[in-house]
């Protein structure tokens, strides 16, 4: 497995800390709630082993917003939210906008169960767009690298399926930079994680840029 040096890990953690702080500020503005951030933990894993690693802390149903980014550093950015948290979040942002999945309704009626509310896909996708962009833009600005984003996509499926499709789509995407930072709001009702999946060359470019940034910070201090 690719190992990070202590200097790389420290600099990356600080960079992610700043990126997540911007994300939290955006989320706080959107919801009117204070967002609690844990200290970031960074690790690099072969993408094929990512599911196993994620299983340590992501449990149950999740909603994932995926956004592809391109530039000197290119890859996939994923925002993972616990499913119930995604519901809370979409309610917080637009409590009047009811959304019920038609298929769920049919199933619920058939099973004679209470109708289950589904997170509003439009709202969740836009939340993902704002949060992923605010975090990645900080990386771009700080590291002085240009990053372009694709249209975000929402997946309300098990993470395994999504990760599997990423592996199949691009064999070069061999490493995932796992950003183990969780954020919580509304007394832990909403928890989330962000993951960046990078190609080998992008990961190398990112590490060079991060080390350069850390050296400059120390020189300028």
């Amino acid at each position: 497995m690719k190992e990070l040096t202590e200097k790389q890990r420290d600099a990356l953690s600080e960079l992610l800390n700043m990126g997540f702080a911007r994300t939290a500020a955006s989320l706080s503005q959107l919801t009117g709630n204070r967002v609690l951030l844990d200290a970031p933990y960074v690790s690099i894993h072969p993408i094929k082993k990512l599911s196993k690693e994620l299983a340590n802390f992501v449990t149950g149903e999740i909603a994932t917003v995926q956004q592809i980014f391109t530039g000197n550093v290119s890859g996939n950015a994923l925002l993972l939210l616990n499913y119930d948290g995604a519901l809370v979040l979409s309610d917080l942002i637009d409590p009047d906008l009811e959304y019920e999945d038609e298929n769920d309704q049919k199933n619920d009626q058939k099973n004679n169960q209470k109708k289950r509310k589904t997170p509003n896909p439009e709202i969740l996708t836009e939340i993902g767009n704002i949060l992923l962009n605010s975090c990645m833009s900080v990386f771009g600005n700080i590291l002085n690298i240009s990053i372009s984003f694709s249209v975000p996509r929402l997946y309300l499926e098990a993470l395994d399926g999504l990760l599997h499709s990423l592996v199949i789509q691009d064999e070069e995407m061999r490493y995932a930079m796992l950003v183990y930072t969780s954020f919580r709001l509304k007394e832990n009702a909403v928890t989330g994680y962000m993951i960046m999946i990078l190609s080998v060359s992008s990961l190398d470019n990112l590490l060079v840029a991060v080390e350069h940034w850390a050296d400059e910070l120390l020189e300028d201090a």
């Binding site: 600080e14 800390n17 700043m18 997540f20 702080a21 500020a25 706080s28 709630n33 204070r34 967002v35």
Partner: peptide
């Protein structure tokens, strides 16, 4: 001394 930019955090 933090990266946290939230107004609600500053207030807290």
């Amino acid at each position: 001394a933090t990266a946290d930019l939230q107004d609600l955090t500053i207030k807290a």
